[in-house]
Write a protein that binds this DNA or RNA. Structure first.
Lengths: 205, 205
DNA sequence: GTCTATAGACTGATAGAC
DNA sequence: GTCTATCAGTCTATAGAC
């Protein structure tokens, strides 16, 4: 992917760098104040350009949001797949996603803010989040069905319900964790531990 | 409460009615687009007055938000206490809160939107939600501790962790439920059932 | 690729009439 | 208690120079 050589004299390489910087600043600000409240001027100023300069890279605010979401999907799915390929269970792979997120609070803020905002029908990311949740829930449910067939899942646990509960625990803990910012670590929720505890509580033994 | 007779000629009764209408419209709009994006003009127009007219009842936008939250706290805690007094367990009382909320989607939207928005430190409801979550988590944890002492809680369940998981499930399911608006009811998450299933999974037997 | 300038619309809040 | 008018600020997006 990164092997395509940039043209020599067009400023292409610099352009790519700025695009990346813009995306990172957008992730941060969308996380801090949500998509609707975030302004292009603020994002632009954080990377040292004017807001028409930003609009040269992304033709509109909604296009910038789409690019942010597409980039997160790419990064997340690569890391998740790597964990699965390394032989980890889906539950453990999820816990590892959470572990990485704890080290990058901006990402957690981004998804908490955007998923809440996007519940309203007119939001530019509404369709994205509907699709995303449907996919994730289906994936987790299928995984639990396999565990049930192998006798690993507790027999009184319904795979579809458990999938919804696991995803809900993930989302809900993020809100608690963000609201506990600044508390001593001992009082703050240990998200990876809580996710692992929940996963374990669904299994036999 | 409602037995205090309004003065005869001051327009007091009408004023109270307008105040109530404003609060209801604010709940709706804050839920639809969040606090920051909601405009006083839009709320005012929904109750048929101008925005300076609204500001006569609530001196600022933040004051309106505070009033909205205070009113929800009052309504919710009265209903919750009534369920507890009627002999229901805290888990069951929670499930009943969810049942009522399913019939009033605006309330669910309000809390999903606001709690996400308020995770950022500068938000006018930040302190409110920090306090609220700390209180709710402590209450649920104490309840689980009592259940453990009575041998009702599964012995491998930690009360503090379970409290966090229950509150997280509640919050997370709301996001899923809102994103599934418009789907056939069979495909939409059954929030009360999922909450009851989770509560039950924590108990022995 | 980035800028200044600007259009056109919206915001919360205030002043002051009735 | 509600209004009109207005202030000073913000927003996204576009036009056009360099």
């Amino acid at each position: 992917m990164s092997s395509a050589a940039p043209p020599a004299s067009t400023g292409y390489a610099r352009g790519r760098a700025t695009r990346e910087e813009i995306l990172e600043a957008a992730v941060q600000l969308f996380g801090e104040v949500g998509y609707r409240t975030a302004s292009l001027r603020e994002i632009a100023s954080r990377v040292g350009i004017s807001h028409p300069g930003l609009l040269h890279h992304f033709p509109s605010k909604a296009a910038l949001l789409e690019a942010v979401l597409a980039r997160r999907d790419e990064v997340d799915s690569i890391a998740l797949q790597a964990d699965l390929d390394a032989g980890h269970s889906l539950g453990e792979a999820f816990a590892r996603v959470v572990e990485r997120n704890v080290a990058r609070p901006g990402i957690v803020e981004l998804f908490v803010s955007l998923s809440a905002e996007a519940t309203s029908a007119g939001h530019p990311a509404h369709a994205y989040f509907r699709r995303r949740y449907a996919e994730v829930l289906a994936t987790v449910r299928r995984d639990f069905e396999q565990l049930r067939d192998r006798g690993v899942l507790r027999p009184d646990v319904d795979p579809a319900t458990a999938a919804r509960q696991l995803v809900a625990v993930l989302d809900g803990l993020q809100v608690q964790w963000l609201l506990e910012e600044g508390l001593p670590p001992a009082e703050r929720v240990d998200m990876p531990a809580a996710v692992r505890a929940f996963s374990a509580s669904l299994m036999v033994g």
